[in-house]
Design a protein around this nucleic acid. Structure first.
Lengths: 377, 377
DNA sequence: GGAAATTCCGGGAATGATC
DNA sequence: GATCATTCCCGGAATTTCC
């Protein structure tokens, strides 16, 4: 716990002071300086975002966020007038500048006004916490950055900067505290939600620690992508049953648009952001992620239990279904996610003629709406 | 045309001035005073609302309005800097005060802020008009008045006050112009639209000229109500086929909840606002107007042509239908507006047994939605 | 505790921007 | 003129306010 660290530091300072005479003026000064440096950095790093604002943030829509000052209860006891914490939108560029400069640069121009963005930093004596809770915060409007080339607004990342200036209890040292939220994609309409989620997912999954905000690899190993998709699937659908080898193979064929490679071939490939959510799948009107997100949504809403009972193969190609079913008894069927329709599921079944010939049929896909009309799922 | 009136006045003034010496100082002064009085009143009454703001006005929703200064082109020629016209929400009480006081009292507190409410008064030389067009006006929020008793917010009337101060061309006489819009009912949600429309309809139909704003009778002769309903029906449905005697009789039975009186009895009755849109119809969950408005809506959207071809009896009681149909051949049917469901229409048909017994059946009513599903109407 | 009034917000449709 | 981006606003649902 960092409180105890502070205690140790205070004790250290006391001891140093007590020994002041013995150490000599120069050494004492150097120790003092070092001490306040470490102290300041410790204090600053105890100023944290406790509740992150939503990473896909819609304008004109209320959201919540919260920050917590771990050392607050220890260091701010005496304050009568409450300290105010501000929340401001910052662009990726501004975030980068903030990260570079040790000094707290003032924000030049705002990229979007947040309403009710000043909140008191409150110390709760019973729980021993010092928090600022942003309840009714709302981003009024967003000013987009100039985008280069084919970048869309849903690829643009920004963040919320929380900042305050407090006077520390011993010595009344004034110190400026600030902390950035995780990167945020701002949208203005629900129809941008998909793409914004892609950006956030990619960022959360593949960004390095302590990066320059908000750099992230442009391509990643396919295996990492599989892991990410799997985690996302399980989290979103709320299931413990993850994706299987065969599923990954099918997904690889789809995202790479390569139907000749073997599962092993894909293992060592890398997948690009463009393949993930910029390029349109050939012959379809949507990207890989848009399709996958449709599957997530459908499964979450209607098919959770069926999936968890492993009753849905889902991620399987039409061709492979044919192969599988053609050797299956008459009437055998399986559930497959539609390739052509976002958020669709289809029933593939085999009909066997008397002569032993087999015919595999795919039913017109069902959407979540269709299922709800039939009160299924 | 009032321009010519102005010309006459100007000539008169010239003549009076020319004769000044002969008339004597006192008489001249009195004539001058009288002249500027009449002139001022003339100018003021040429400041008009050309385009009324919607009488049912929803907050946070853009609307338009326009005012026109008839004498503007004649009197404002010289102005370089444009005169600005303001639009402000005023309560009924404020409107009443404005009407009483000849002097332009300044508005104390606003009952609701209108955005982009200051617009230039522009003279268009080609068309010879002087207008101020409020394009992107929007009422941010409404402060409701204290209501007495059972009054609902949708019975509260307010208005928009348009005002400006201009300097008249000859003599640079500064004059304050203001004009009120028609009364307005402010709503915050579409579900208040019905009731607001009732208030507006009652007001438009039954208010006297030059009343104290916005007084209106609390009860009116049933015949007047019939006339109003008929006009409303034809205007709303866009049909030339109005309501008939039998329809009025049925409506009277409904609104008065009196099934024993004769058509002639109703002729001399008067109907109250409460009966029109405050009291719930017995056994139903809605008022007379709410029901009637549902009929309007359904007919307008789905049944316009059928109504215009007189294929719909519509306003007829279940009992009377029974009587009618029981003497009709097997299979006869008619269309009747549902009593129990707002915006519903039902088919009543007769089934005649072999023994000659008749059985009148009412189909479960169709709503506009039902009809659109069956792609009818 | 229920009705009235309002706020919240998803998503369809219209509009505006951009290439 | 097609796509992307945004605004506009209806109306269901949740929440708040008022009796």
């Amino acid at each position: 716990r960092c409180e105890s660290l502070v205690e140790i530091y205070f004790q250290l300072q006391q001891q140093v002071l007590a020994l002041g005479a013995e150490l000599g003026a120069e050494l004492l000064a150097r120790l003092q300086e070092r001490f306040s440096e470490v102290m300041s950095s410790l204090v600053k790093s105890s100023f944290l975002v406790e509740k992150q604002p939503p990473q896909v943030l819609k304008t004109q829509t209320k959201f919540q966020a919260g920050i917590r000052f771990l050392l607050g209860p220890r260091l701010l006891k005496a304050s009568a007038k409450p300290y105010m914490v501000r929340a401001d939108m910052v662009t990726e560029k501004q975030a980068r500048e903030l990260a570079l400069s040790v000094y707290s640069s003032t924000l030049s121009e705002s990229t979007g006004e947040i309403m009710h963005n000043v909140v008191a930093l409150e110390t709760n004596p019973t729980s021993g916490t010092c928090c600022a809770n942003f309840k009714n915060v709302l981003l009024k409007k967003i000013k987009r950055c100039e985008r280069k080339g084919s970048e869309s607004v849903t690829e643009e990342k920004c963040a919320v900067l929380f900042s305050t200036t407090v006077a520390l209890s011993p010595g009344n040292l004034s110190i400026h505290l600030q902390v950035l939220s995780l990167p945020i994609v701002v949208i203005v309409h629900g129809n941008q939600d998909n793409n914004a989620k892609a950006t956030v997912l990619w960022d959360n999954a593949f960004s390095e620690m302590d990066r320059v905000p908000f750099m992230v690899a442009e391509r990643v190993p396919w295996e990492k992508m599989c892991e990410t998709l799997n985690l996302k699937f399980m989290a979103e659908v709320q299931t413990t049953k993850g994706l299987l080898k065969e599923h990954y193979f099918f997904l690889a064929q789809k995202i790479f648009n390569d139907h000749s490679a073997s599962p092993e071939d894909f293992q060592n490939r890398s997948v690009s952001w463009a393949q993930f959510n910029k390029e349109i799948l050939p012959g379809r009107g949507f990207t890989f992620w848009q399709w996958f997100d449709g599957v997530l949504d459908l499964t979450k809403r209607c098919l959770k239990s069926y999936w968890s009972d492993r009753l849905i193969v889902g991620f399987i190609s039409k061709q492979f279904v044919c192969k599988l079913l053609s050797s299956a008894p008459d009437g055998t069927f399986l559930l497959r996610f539609s390739d052509s329709e976002i958020g669709g599921v289809t029933i593939a079944h085999v009909m066997r003629g008397k002569d032993g010939s087999s015919q595999v049929e795919n039913i017109q896909p069902f959407s979540a709406k269709d299922l709800s009309i039939r009160s299924l799922g």
